[in-house]
Amino acid sequence: MKKTLIAGVATSLILGGAVWIAPAWTADAARPTLPYTDPARIAEGKVLYADYCASCHGTNLEGQQPNWQDRDADGYLPAPPHDETGHTWHHDNALLIRIVREGTEAIVGGSYKSNMMGFGDVLSDDEIASILGYIKSTWPAQVQDIHNEINARVLP
C-alpha cells in the first residue's frame, strides 16, 4: 500500500513536471496554438515584436517597404506587413513558428533569397508564440477565424 502510494505520488510529480516544462505554446507539436486571446502573452508579444520585428515589418504591423510582393534588384522580397493586408495569416501556426525560428531561406530552400533571419538562437519557442499571438490578436475576427480554419486542416 505504502509503495503504491509512493509510486503514485512519484508518477504524478514526474508527469506534472513534464507538463510544467512543456512549451506553453502548444499541446501538440504538429498543431501548435498561439496565445492570441491571452492578455499577458499578447502584452509580452507586443514588447518582443517591437524589439525584434518592428524595424522591418512596421511598428503597427503595416510593413515598412512599398511593393512588398516585388523582388528588389538583388532578388530579395521586402519584409511583408503582418496585419491583415499581408500574408502571415495564410500560413498555419507550425509554419509561422518555423519561419521565425529558422528563417525563411531555411524553410523555402533552393535558391530562395530572404533577409528574414532565424531567431531560434535569440528567442524561445514560447517567445516566438507570444509574438505571433500578438500579431494574430490584431487581425479582424473574420481573419482570425480563417486562420483557425487553416490550422484545423493541418494534418498531424
Rank of each mutant, 00 (worst) to 15 (best):
D74S: 14
C53V: 01
A50H: 09
A30W: 07
G75R: 08
V143W: 02
D51A: 14
M116V: 09
L48T: 01
D70M: 13
C53W: 03
A141C: 07
D121R: 02
A94G: 03
Y134R: 05
Y52D: 00
C56W: 01
A22I: 00
I107G: 06
T104G: 06
V100P: 12
I6N: 05
T37S: 14
S111H: 08
G110H: 13
S137F: 11
T26S: 07
G86M: 11
G58M: 00
K3I: 11
S55V: 08
H82W: 12
D145R: 12
E149P: 02
L61D: 00
V108G: 07
N67R: 05
S130C: 08
S130M: 04
A40L: 15
S12Q: 05
V154G: 01
A73D: 13
G63D: 03
R153A: 10
R101F: 04
M1V: 06
R31A: 13
S12N: 04
N148A: 15
Q65Y: 10
A40F: 11
L34K: 08
S137D: 09
K2I: 13
L13Q: 02
K3D: 09
D72F: 10
Y52K: 09
Q65D: 06
S111N: 12
L155Q: 10
P80F: 15
K113H: 05
G16Y: 05
H57N: 05
G109N: 13
A73I: 10
R153H: 09
L5Y: 06
Y76E: 03
L48G: 07
H87Y: 08
P66R: 04
D83R: 12
E127N: 05
G75K: 08
P32D: 07
Y52E: 00
A43D: 12
V143F: 07
G118C: 07
D38A: 11
G58N: 01
D74L: 13
I42V: 15
D83T: 10
I135W: 02
P66H: 00
T104S: 13
